[in-house]
Design a protein around this nucleic acid. Structure first.
Length: 317
DNA sequence: CTCTGCGTTGGTAGCAAGAG
DNA sequence: CTCTTGCTACCAACGCAGAG
């Protein structure tokens, strides 16, 4: 009698246990799902540490009731209650000590910590040279191919002046993809190695592709604008092109180039109008070229440089 | 060289809004 | 009402560059 009761008891225990285990399983599974859906992006996906911090703040705010600017400040060891806010808003920069405190408070491990440090330095660096150095470091610190392809490609493309020149060269109908021909066409000329690497790189980055007949033709990869990486890349590019313009004063005869300049005393209103008219002129030229049915014979670079010679002009918003 | 002004960084006090 | 939170105005210390 007692034995049968015991069996029934055992059975019931096991049954509830099973139900319990099953429900725990369900619970953990759905819990896991909840975690997954509100998971934030990995820090490696960011090129702006302020954007990362903003997302971090929003994420924390959503997932924990106790999180606040004050809480974070205290955790990171700041006396000031709203450091995080100031930094997210871009009103303040992070010092080297501050970076350490943030890494600690954000709970970033070795690699992510190093990435965060470099990212902050990259965003906060003023000198172009330092910015470039930090950017290369960022790419190095990013595991695998996780770094945003588009931005990396963009940076690569603008890193050498002859990449865009070669991209235009392929439109010449007697274009020959041998490195020797390409190197010989460019002025100033580049090495065979550079030419070879450039074609491989342009193909890899998607700026040129092979047509059905196997000829190289232009292609349009996605290019983002407006972010810091883009503007850094483009500044590097402009710097090189302005350098080439200076060189061309010596190396190209006057009949084959057009270099002129004006020094103007202007109002703010005229300044804006001149900028607009330069942009309009560029559009006009692009339009003209696209309608020109003649074959491509040359690749030229046209720069516009319009910049202040007085310090006030450089500062006005 | 010193002095001065300025920008940066870190901090304090306190206000308004909202929850409880 | 109190307490928390977000936010801002303001202050102090420090380093640095430029003027004299």
């Amino acid at each position: 009698m007692h034995f049968t009761y015991f069996i029934v008891f055992l059975y019931n225990v096991l049954r509830t246990l099973k139900v319990y285990i099953f429900s725990v399983f369900i619970l953990t599974k759905s819990f896991h799902l909840v975690i997954l859906t509100s998971e934030m992006k990995d820090i490696f996906e960011y090129t702006d540490f302020r954007a990362y911090l903003k997302d971090y703040y929003l994420y924390k705010k959503e997932t924990s009731s106790y999180f606040s600017f004050r809480y974070f400040s205290k955790k990171a060891g700041f006396g000031s209650p709203s450091v995080l806010k100031f930094i997210i808003d871009g009103q303040r920069n992070l010092s080297q000590d501050g970076i350490d405190k943030f890494i600690e408070a954000l709970g970033l491990t070795q690699k992510r910590g190093a990435f965060f440090r470099t990212l902050v330095n990259f965003n906060q660096a003023k000198a172009e040279k330092a910015k470039n150095r930090y950017f290369s470091e960022l790419i190095r610190l990013t595991p695998g191919e996780r770094f945003r392809h588009v931005e990396k490609n963009q940076y690569e493309f603008y890193s050498k002046w002859y990449y865009s020149a070669i991209r235009e060269l392929v439109t010449i109908d007697y274009f020959n993809e041998s490195p020797a021909w390409i190197a010989g066409q460019l002025h100033p000329s580049i090495s065979l190695r550079e030419a070879k690497k450039a074609v491989a790189m342009l193909l890899k980055l998607g700026f040129i592709k092979r047509s059905k007949s196997g000829k190289l033709i232009q292609a349009d990869p996605i290019i983002t604008t407006g972010n810091e990486v883009a503007s850094l890349s483009i500044r590097n590019f402009h710097r090189q092109m302005i350098g080439l313009a200076a060189e061309s004063l010596n190396s190209v005869s006057r009949e084959r180039r057009e270099i002129s300049g004006l020094t103007l005393g202007i109002s703010e209103k005229s300044f804006k109008e001149i900028k607009e008219r330069i942009a309009a002129f560029e559009d006009e030229l692009l339009d003209m070229i696209s309608k020109d049915m003649e074959k491509t014979e040359h690749v030229y670079q046209l720069n516009f440089q319009f910049y202040p010679l007085n310090s006030h002009g450089a500062k006005v918003q």
